[in-house]
Design a protein around this nucleic acid. Structure first.
Lengths: 156, 156
DNA sequence: TTCGATGCAAATAGTTTGCATTCTA
DNA sequence: TAGAATGCAAACTATTTGCATCGAA
């Protein structure tokens, strides 16, 4: 994933695209909205709404949590953002585009992110077994990682 | 799944077993505890804590929601109950034993329950692909059902 | 007659909503 | 300057916890 390293660069390049996309739906590119987008792009992985509101490591000014949720929702409807749930806890948000699928360990909560395609075989097997088109980008594929599976087999 | 059809029968037969199991861990079989167990066995599928507290269709006297949560937790630690999360919304509880795995449609929220074993092929494929031991009894296998997948393919 | 369990109330986490004010286009 | 978006507060859902009282063994 090619992520701009400077906030200024990002603001200059992607803001225009974002503004255009938003405008085409009768929405505005406000300061708070831009902040959400920047936080998402600057983060090195999926982040919570809380983290975005706090400013993701102090790199951007903090904003109101309710507005962050509202903006994430609007941006997701526009296809610019997507969210996922990895186990319990708050939802996680990421910019759309860099699609990944997640495999979560119920034992140690470790989470493996793989490019879409890595699980094509699994998808095919699921399709054959129950006719469903499996997707692990919103809710993860849950199970036990090799280590936890071994511990489980040997009886804790 | 063979489920007793009469509350009295259930109370007479399983109560003793339950009482013994509980006692062996220094716990008591109180009225509220028995009510939780009865609600779980009488329900025709996984139920929420709220439904148990309400009395699952008025068949048993209602009890305190906090106590229901506490009891579900204790009973789960003893291996008599297990819970699962199907998408958003409250957790669902079921008696342990009748193990099932769940496949949830993200499109229409329909949920398919299959006996453990139906997804052995999927488990094998996952094992080969990422080394994880997949389990769909706590968190479901999420995707699109045949109908929703078709709609999705044809562009809404 | 002891502790474990209960019921009630209050706290908690995560998220949503109402509303007067602010700011973008 | 119309109306979209904001910030603050309050509501909401799901769940947990504190505590005085109650009851099973």
């Amino acid at each position: 994933m090619t992520v701009p390293s400077l906030t200024a660069e990002l603001a200059a390049s992607d803001s225009d695209t974002a503004a255009r996309t938003l405008r085409s739906r009768g929405m505005r590119l406000s300061a708070a909205r831009r902040l959400v987008l920047e936080a998402l792009y600057l983060a090195d992985g999926p982040v919570t709404a809380e983290e975005i509101a706090t400013g993701v490591g102090g790199r951007v000014p903090p904003s109101d949590l309710a507005s962050v949720y509202r903006n994430l929702d609007r941006l997701e409807r526009l296809g610019m953002v997507r969210h996922m749930h990895l186990g319990h806890g708050p939802g996680l948000y990421a910019p759309a585009g860099q699609e990944r699928e997640y495999i979560l360990c119920e034992g140690c909560s470790s989470c493996l992110a793989v490019g879409s395609g890595h699980l094509e075989g699994v998808r095919a097997t699921v399709r054959a077994a129950v006719g469903f088109e499996a997707r692990f980008s919103h809710f993860p594929l849950v199970g036990l990682c090799p280590t936890c599976a071994a511990v489980h087999r040997d009886g804790v």
